[in-house]
Simulated scan of single mutants.
Amino acid sequence: MLTLNVIGAGRVGQTLARLFHSADQFQIASVFTRTAATAQHASHFIGSGKAVHNLLELASADVCMLTVADDDIATISNLLLVKDMLKPRSIVFHCSGSKSSSILQPLRDAGHYVASFHPVRSFASPEVVVADFVDTYCGVEGDAEALAILVPAFEAIGARTFMLETEHKLRYHAASVFASNYLVTLMDIALKTYQAAGLSPEMAVALAQPLAKKTLENVFSSSTEDALTGPIKRGDLETVEKQLADLALWDQQAASLYQAFIDPTKAVANRVKRH
């Protein structure tokens, strides 16, 4: 069985390492975080691996999983190279959504195999994700030699892998930000706007929750064109302008966001008309 070092055992690292260990895909060698306490906690959660808080104490391993912050990937991978901490022809992969495997090019140039694997989901709670990871989509790209080992390992823990184009990794991740992170921000603004209209926080949630939930259901059961409702679809642009002016009196940030959505929403509405 191939050995795996987990470098940066936060929520993503802990989750994947525990799943790999439970499915007998890798033997966990070292579990690295920046402090002894967090490394020990991560190792305990994973159920295997030596807790390490000094990177130079990593055990030798066949595969290295970099689940560190995006800005640390290049630094950590270069340190592994400079300190000669990798076996010949090691596999090194990271789990960043926005960075491609090209950030590991120095390792590739040194004869190692590199890849990136991005699980398309929230990792708010490792315990929860471990329990329902099956059918999680994972965007992958990188060297064929790395993918030949990693794709079967990810599929063994229930992932649905799909190939990404390396040059479009940033754009792919931006789509995920729209679908997840910015959706949260949009709901935050909606709830605040309801409250600014004089409604209680509880009533704001009561109104926004079914509206947002049903809208998303309509998007994915049909299409964005069919799901669109409201003043722009009706061509009631006077209402839109009045709402924009009213929002500007209350909160310029909310008004700017509202305005930013006008033209893209008109584009969706125009597609409806053409159909």
Rank of each mutant, 00 (worst) to 15 (best):
V130Y: 14
P231T: 15
N181G: 11
F178V: 14
I7C: 02
Y194G: 03
R271S: 14
A156G: 12
K214R: 08
F93S: 01
A204M: 06
I91T: 07
E155R: 07
N181S: 05
V240M: 09
V130K: 11
L249V: 08
G10V: 07
S100H: 04
S125E: 11
D135W: 03
V140H: 06
I91Q: 01
S77Q: 06
S77C: 09
D143S: 14
H168Y: 11
S48Y: 08
V177G: 02
L147S: 02
V177L: 07
H112T: 06
A110C: 13
K266G: 08
F162C: 13
T265A: 10
H168I: 04
L207V: 05
A260P: 00
F178L: 14
V114W: 04
D109R: 06
K169W: 10
P88T: 06
L191D: 05
A206R: 13
L56N: 05
Q253V: 05
F26Y: 11
G142M: 00
L104F: 00
D109P: 02
Q105C: 13
G142D: 04
P210H: 08
E217P: 01
A267I: 10
L191E: 00
T3P: 04
P119S: 08
L81R: 01
L228V: 09
Q105S: 15
V31L: 01
Q209K: 03
F26P: 03
R89K: 14
G47T: 09
K242M: 03
A196T: 06
S200D: 06
P264W: 09
G235H: 02
A110N: 05
R89Y: 15
A196S: 07
K233W: 03
T229C: 05
S48M: 06
L216E: 04
V128G: 10
G8F: 09
D263F: 07
R89Q: 15
A267V: 11
E241M: 03
T75K: 10
I189E: 00
L207E: 02
A17V: 08
M85K: 00
Y172R: 13
I7F: 09
I73L: 10
A159P: 07
L247T: 01
E217I: 14
Q195S: 07
V128I: 12
G8S: 09
A36Y: 06
L80R: 04
F117T: 04
F123K: 01
Q259N: 09
S102E: 09
A190S: 02
T265D: 04
L247E: 01
I46A: 08
V63R: 01
A37K: 15
S125T: 07
V240R: 00
M85I: 02
E225W: 03
G8K: 03
T35E: 11
A175H: 13
